[in-house]
Design a protein around this nucleic acid. Sequence first.
DNA 1: ACCAGCACGTA
DNA 2: CGTACGTGCTGGTG
Length: 887
Amino acid sequence: MDRLLLIDGHSVAYRAFFALPVDNFATTTGQHTNAVFGFTSMLINVLRDEAPTHVAVAFDVSRQTFRLEQYPDYKGNRSKSPQEFTGQIPLIKQVLDALHIQTFEKDGFEADDIIGTLATQAEAAGMEVLICTGDRDALQLVTGTTTVLYPRKGVSDLARMTPEAVQDKYGVAPANYPDIAAMVGETSDNLPGVPGVGPKTAAKWLGQFGSLDEIIAKVDQIPGKAGESMRAHLDDVIRNRSINALIRDLDLPAGPADLAFSTEWDRDAIHTVFDALEFAALRTRLFDYLGGGDEQVATDTGVSIDVTVLGAGQVQPWLDEHAATDAVGLDVTGVLRPVAPRADAVAIAAADGAAAWIDTSTLDPADDAALKAWLADADRPKVLHDVKGQVHALAAQGWTLAGVRADTALATYLVKPDQRSYDLADLSLRYLKRELGVGDDSGQLAFDDDSAGAETAGQRARATLDLWGVLETELEQQEPLTLLRDLELPLVDVLARMEARGIGVDSEHLDTLHAEFTERMLAAAQDAYDAIGREVNLGSPKQLQEVLFEQLEMPKTKRTKTGYTTDAEALQQLFVKTEHPFLAALLAHRDVTRLRQTVEGLQKTVQPDGRIHTTYAQTIAATGRLSSADPNLQNIPIRTESGRRIREAFCVGAGFDTLVTADYSQIEMRIMAHLSEDADLIEAFRSGHDFHTVMAAKVFERDPSDIDGGLRARIKAMNYGLAYGLSSYGLSQQLSITTGEAQALMDDYFETFGGVRDYLRGVVDEARQTGFTETIMGRRRYLPDLQSDNRQRREMAERMALNAPIQGSAADIIKVAMLGVERALDEAGLTSRMLLQVHDELVLEVAAGEKDQVEQLVRDQMASAADLSVPLDVSVGVGRTWHEAGH
DNA sequence: ACCAGCACGTA
DNA sequence: CGTACGTGCTGGTG
């Protein structure tokens, strides 16, 4: 028998749009594809599972329908579809075109009406009908031969709504579903129902009276609150019923018989469309289905793999047989941190399809040695996902890891640096269409069930290997492969060592500071309470607003989403105006509370070895920078005197002589000079004199000796703001001058440094054309919002485009320097070691007698990390504490 | 328990 | 109405 599949295109795509994270589905040019992906994925599943002989997809053509004329608020609660969604509809139509699936749309009507018409005609012609839609109004079409496939959640789980299923769920026959809906209401269409009447009551009445018309006729006989409510909202019900009735006799250009579906596709057309959408895995699924399923098709519910749990004496033979030459996927479970790491198990997925799982606690000495040697063998290639934590875990076992050919998290980061997470399960779903078993994310082993742990870990190892298979081809077309191999991957080991070393801390000093800050905090709080005659929570912006703007009736500050700002800058301005002692006390309280908090945070993270071990994140910052967490050692105070005292707590550890800090001076401006090739800017750096003064002298056409502090400060602010996309408004705020003056300053500046102006303009123009920016080492950042119609978003993207090459190139350079420093220290056989990185600064711990050598070595490595048209200046400081070693 | 918003430290 | 981060608090939601 013929089977007609009818799909409500908008409804299904809309479901897909919200079911799949928009951030995870975009092409390298920034086109969002989550709705297209979800729609296509569902389409392929239904084609495969239902094998229809005829197919059509209906779309809503616009919002103006006869229903809207009848009820102006129809679907009025639907926020205007986001542009990210509507932009995908044409792409869905392209996919359908390539598959030769006919689409319908009709002015003034909804997709549902088209579907109602085609379903009615098809039934009359003796066809079976399947309707795929997320719109419940279609349930009225269900009959013995017409079934609605309703997405339960996401796009892969469809409920088959037969007459029995409708009866079960709503207590009425399909034909009566609109009657129920009219009384209950439909929130998604903004059709209000009768308050107090739910599906249960509505179905009961329908059972009693037989039809909605009868209920309306005899509405006076309905007892109780619900009856009363029904009488009061009778007009709504009648209106709802007339709106939710589907039209079933539209005049359409084609009938069911014209919709025959064949898989005799134009393969080239499909490749073209799927290439453009970068749907590699989906294409495979489509052709697998086409091929008739003789191949094993990866399903959404996960692949089951055979994992051999290796027992005593089996490790060496297995490794020899399966993990000798081809790269394998490797997954270490345990505690994957620099602090108290632990490796519980190792899963290996080999290229030949075999997989093994090894429990580290049951290894005999021979197995241990075999595994250890294999892990450390650089000629046994391995692929891992987010390898740094696993390096820590293996190190706890006394094992080193070599031969890491790829890290799939880093690889994905280089291709899509704006993603906020690179979870293996997510990537597996996205690139492999494979769901991973439910292992918990922490990497902890399941407590009792080894086989479940082995299965999950094996799946992760397999997914990692397969993921690399997909990513490698994607990377090879671009520069990121070099970045991965020569920069990020080698850096993993360096970072792991730095994390494992930690930095020495003087806990007593921290305790002293904490006590002192606590005392000062309490005093400031008391001062604040005295000033207003009551106690409030000084940490609550909400309560502060009450005090400032209601009790004290101070002038309003800048608006925030929830009221008026109480940030330090605004409070300072209020203090200048009012000189109210509360403000002084509050500001003091803020400062010292913050310091105390910082100290407390550090105290909590000091390990038994008397050191703090931060964790560096290599895939967080979209520009290529590292970030530091648990604790963050990249934001330890330095600007204020009290803040610097916290730096005194970071000190040289036992067995070492001193700390050394080395930082790049004005690295971002130097990169700007290099990239812009502005002759005057380059000259300013080559002159070797105070940079900001020289720059000011050029702008104001004076001798450097005639540049006073004020002029220097202006140009300094300009210099720093430049790489951030500073506006005249921003500059005026920072310098407390008018926007006119700020604009004049910017004009003067750009007139002097025309190369800089041209460069900045060019960066944005090029990014708009190509869709991305690039650092000196070819690290890309994609900025689709450069095309946004929303001014705020677009301008934000423009500033990101200005900043990304500069900040990102600086990140590239210091990463190169870190590799150089680590390698040089090692080659020189020195004990001294690198501990911290703070974006443009390195902190090292230096052993007795190595100071001069280390200083020279670090200077050399940092200065030669990149070959720019200006020198890379490095300044070095030495001291017992981080504070002393600072400059 | 989780989340958004605010505030604030660094480069 | 300047980029890139991480953390801790409050006060709202569950």
